[in-house]
């Protein structure tokens, strides 16, 4: 894999289930799990490979720092342009889709539990292919 995949979700069960699906489907072999956005942010800040592409599977509804605050923080740190995001939520709020228009770095929406068909659609999508080829 020529990119790093982070999963950020406050629900440990989803981290386990999603990781299993990602690995089993061959979408990514070593996804990293983060139970809170703050830790994921710290990890992104300390990455010593600035050219390494990163994809984040991001939950929106989380305590302390939610998905939107996480994205805002990344924008402030000027890290956003190197990273692409897929929003992974229990149900997609139409309001989230509207807010997402502000973030061209968001390349997809997935509803939990994710399965191989969703991952196949995502990997075949234009936005994801662009991410791979940049």
């Amino acid at each position: 894999m020529n990119y790093e995949l982070l999963m950020v979700d406050d629900d440990e069960l989803f981290l386990v289930l999603n990781k299993r699906e990602l690995v089993k489907s061959g979408f990514h072999l070593e996804p990293k799990s983060f139970l809170d956005a703050e830790n994921a942010l710290t990890h992104l800040k300390t990455l010593d490979q600035p050219d390494k592409k990163t994809l984040v599977f991001l939950d929106i509804n989380m305590p302390q720092m939610d998905g939107w605050q996480f994205l805002k923080k990344l924008r402030e740190l000027n890290l956003l342009q190197k990273i692409r995001h897929v929003l992974v939520t229990s149900s997609t709020d139409p309001k989230d889709k509207i807010i997402a228009k502000d973030y061209p770095e968001i390349i997809g929406f997935l509803e939990k539990p994710i399965d191989k068909y969703m991952l196949k659609d995502l990997s075949e999508g234009e936005a994801f292919q662009q991410f791979l080829n940049t």
Binding site: D11, L13, F14, L17, R20, K24, S90, S91, D93, E111, K112, P113, D115
Partner: peptide, 29 residues
Amino acid sequence: WTQSHIVRAPLARLLGLVTLIQTEGEDLE
């Protein structure tokens, strides 16, 4: 909307677990 969102979270966990059991069979990790 809020209610359906709240319902959807535990339901998504259940669906994920059911899929896990169905696909893993005896080889559960």
